[in-house]
Each structure stands twice: as structure tokens, then as C-alpha cells.
Design a protein around this nucleic acid. Sequence first.
RNA 1: GCACUCGUAGCUCAGCUGGAUAGAGCACCCGCCUUCUAAGCGGGCGGUCUCAGGUUCGAAUCCUGACGGGUGUACCA
Length: 566
Amino acid sequence: MKIKSQLNQIVTQALLDADIPANDIIVSDATRPEFGDYQFNGVMKLAKVLKKNPRAIASDIVKHINTTGMISKVEIAGPGFINIWLNNDWLSTEATNILNDSRVGVGIVEKPQKIVIDYSGPNMAKQMHVGHLRSTIIGDTLATLLTFLGNDIIRQNHIGDWGTQFGMLIAYLEEQNADTEHQNLKDLEQFYKNAKIRFDQSEAFANKAREYVVKIQQGDAHCLTLWKQFIESSLGHCEEVYSKLGVNLTHDDVRAESFYNSELPNIIKILKDKNISTNSNGAECVFLEGSDAPVIVQKGDGGFLYATTDLAALKFRATNLEADRICYVVDARQAGHFKQVFAISKQAGMVGNDVNLEHIAFGTMMDKSGKPFKTRDGGTIKLIELLDEAIIRAKATIEKREDYSEEKFNEIAYAIGIGAVKYADLSISRESNYLFSWEKMLSFDGNTALYLQYGYARIQSIFRKHNAKLTGNIVIGDELEHRLALMILKFEDTLTKASIEATPHTITTYLYDLTTLFMRFYEQNPILKEGVTEDVKMSRLQLAQLTANVIEQGLEILGIKVVDKI
RNA sequence: GCACUCGUAGCUCAGCUGGAUAGAGCACCCGCCUUCUAAGCGGGCGGUCUCAGGUUCGAAUCCUGACGGGUGUACCA
């Protein structure tokens, strides 16, 4: 339900009917319950332009606001605020209507876009670690969200499969002998370490590794075979993580760095032809306004850099993939880099002016002491181990709660553990650094996945008891039910906002508020208890059902599973 | 040096396209279970929104400056 745009229209019409020039009329959420459901604050500004008393203008507008449909009451308050209450009958009708809607009342965007989302992007020469977590989780949520709203999403996993480290790894792979094939790649972590040790120990090996870098780049068949074998194996490990995380990235979404290799000389040619780049100290550079350091697109030795690859990728995405919007879900520290390549790509015409380029930046994950998240000895924490620990901790959290079957116990712990990790990440505003805390993320209290899952499970419990068809209509009986119904109907506006601003935490905040509201409703308004009339019972059951539907759908967009029982 | 970014309750964070008395959670204190999952709910305590100016009828929000933290900054990605 698009509530805000409907209200905007009603208020705009009221202004027009009152002969007041109206443009960009925006109604906002009321700041307090006693101020109604929504408020319009634009009168004071209008008063200045029109040189009239704001309360007089407000009164004029209010007279023309249509209160026969969704709005029940309008009031002028303070210097000229217009407070708006929604009609209970309208709320109940709209809410009842979406009871059997699989989209819980959420429509499709008017103008679907083709959107490329670049996320995860692990380096094949390393095991996935916590540094890849945020990009993977935030990116996947955006992809799911934008798809749900009706856009055409192209996921791009820009894996790092090219560069000097691969010489070392390939040399080691060959030294270990290829006939054992994937066997010696089973424990990739150990493989990386061993290769590094060999590299540091043996000068001969180190030289061979450097030689291999050149060979790979020259397209030596034998080396390329080994390289491909290595990449496949490393990617397999990533997919293990994706699967455990419940992230929708597949082999088909992989468009590796090396994919753009053949295009790189052309990128340089375009930049040279358009006089965008110049040679400086032997390197091909682009000097952008407002910055003293250049963007180097080709090294003095002829090698290319990641700026070049990113330009090629931008060109490919805008031209071949025909994207309207391209989102890069990458660490905030890369902000400067993206600002530069975005500017160059537009200047060089590699990307059309109408294409929206966005760096979806996120902050660093910190530990309790406020330092970047590392193991005790300063190493990076492997993602797969973090996820396994989350599941173990989830088990500890719920083990005393109920007698579960082994299978059920594992299923619930998985949903809670992985959900906790994802939710903790998504619920913080993405640009700020975030503090990693097991205690906080696995708590039943506060804004956590577990609280929402618990709320959902409580509702399922009600329906296990009720276990019969829902009939009748929703009837709003009190203030709490009014707010709950409205909150349910705000789902679409929330998703829309989150999709435009690329802010998953908008969704988590909403779901948390919804669940809190439901818990209060549930405490105060009995559903299946003695003395509740059939009509009221049915109405409340439907509100409970809708709440569960929104929680489930909302969490699904966040990539988090619900469970019937906790 | 220059650029970017952040500074809100003891702690973790919302709010920032200007609006009414700045909100949550944790922690702490006090209440509420013979009845739908009390791992819940209600109430209380807690703030010069880093500081100083400016714009405005109105500033946590916008502008300038200062202080403090983080990050980036010519051939890694």
C-alpha cells in the first residue's frame, strides 16, 4: 500500500482547491501519536511566500481536505501544523484485503529498472574472511529487495582472479603435482599458507612464481589450465560460504576481473583518443579536477590497474548489460576510487549520463575495543568459521528452552545463528562502522533477528491453538489495533524508501517497530482467551496473521529464515 | 599537507531532503504470569545532540570555523 503518495495527492488537491500554488507537497510521519498518523508541515514555508498568516492558510487547506475516504480527521496545531488521522474503516478494509496476498500488499514499481549490483567480490587468492561479510550480506539484500519490487536485477560477483599472487599459488600447485588435483586444495587455507612459506623460503621457488605471473599473462596453456583449476577450487569454497549464508549468488553471477583483460587496451585507447588521459612520469594518468594525485590507468611497464578494470566493467555494464542503475557494494574506504572512476567513465562516454552510478558504501566491522575485527593473534577471521560459531552459539541460546528433536534443533539453531549475524550487520546504518558482539546479536531483547523470530513464533503458536479458518473482517477496536493495522500497511512505503536509499536498516527498524507493537497488542488484547467474542477474535487473528506475513516477507528480503517454534 | 568521513544517554545505536517535549535497546531500579511462548509487557532513571559562530519564524539536521577520532592520498586491489 502506497500510503504516502496517496496522502500527498489528497493534500496537493486540497491546496489546488484552495487556490494555493502546490508543488512537491510531502506529508511525513507524525512525530508523536497524539499528533495523528501523518502530518503536513509545509504551511509555515508557504506562509512566508504568500505573506499570510500560517494558521489562516492551514485552515483554508484543511477545509478542502477530502475526509470521506482514507482520512478521518484533520487538525491544525501549533503555528500551522496539519495533523492527519487515517480512517479506521479504511484501514480495516485495506488490511482485510491483503490477508491472502502473497506480497502482503506491496505493489510493483511503476518504472522497473535494469539494475546491476556488484557485491561480495572475494579474492580467489585468499579464503573468505569477515571483511567480505558486509558486502555479501548487504548486496544480497539489495538484490532481493529490488527484485521483489519488480526490477530486473543482474548480480555481478567481480571476483579477484588476476594478479601477482596467482603466480605463487600456481607454482605451488604444480610443485605439489596436479595428479592429486583437488585433493591438495581441500584445505585451501593451508594451501595458501604453504605456498607463502615456500615463497619466503626458496629463492628458486620465488623466481618460478614470478615467471608464472608472466606466463599466465602471456596465455601459456599449461599455466592457464592450472590457474583455472585453482580458481574453480577456490570459488567452490566461496560457494560453500554462500550456501551456508543463504546468499543467492551462483556461478552464473561470476564475472571475474580477468573477464575484462582483453578490453583493457581499448579503455586506454578511448581515454587517449578523447584526451582524457596523459602520460606522466611514464604512466598513463587521468588528472581530475579538485585532486592533485592522478588516477593511473596504465603503469610505466604497460601493466593495468584496478581503475582500468573498473572502467572496463562500467562500460560493459552500461553497454552490454544495458543497466539503468549500477550499484557497487564496497567498503567505504574505496569512496575516492569510485568517485574517480565514475567521473572518468561518464566523461569518456563509457557510461551514459542517464545511468545512475552508486557506491553503496559501508563501514568497517569492529571488535569490542573498537579496533578492526581480527583474531587474537591479529589474523583475519575466516567467514566459514564465524558462521559455524554463530550456529553453535545459537544452540547454546535455545537449548534449555524446549525439547526439540535433533533435526528441529539444528534447523532452528541454523535460522537463529545465521539470522543473528546477518541482522546485526543489516540493522546498523550501513555507512557507520559496526561493533561485532555475539551477546548483542543473539539476544532476545532489543532490535535483533531473534526478537523478530520469537515474535513470529508466538504468532504461529496462536494458530496452532486456533487451527481453523479465518472468517469475517478486521475491525479496529482501539488505538493499538489502529496503529498495528497502519504499521502493516506501511510495509510498501518502507521497502520503497529502503530501495531508493539502499538502506536495509530502514527495513529492520520497521520490522522491529512492527514486532514491538504486536507484542504490546498481544499483551493487552486477548485473542483466544475466554470472553472474547467471535468477531473480535477473528479480527485479532487476522491482524496477527498479517503481522506474521509481514515479518516473514520482510525477513525473507533480508535473507533471514523464520521458524514456527523457538 | 590536502581530501573524505564521523562526533547524539554510562554503553550500542536510530533520527539528519530543517518542524512541536531529541527516540530505541543494553545496563540499573520498580511493577505484571492458575488463562494465547514472562527469552514477554508496563513504568522509572539517564541528554549543554563535541564546541563556537551564522542562516531561519524554527537547527541534532543546513553553512563556516575550531577541537577530537577514523579513512584515503602516483604506478597493490
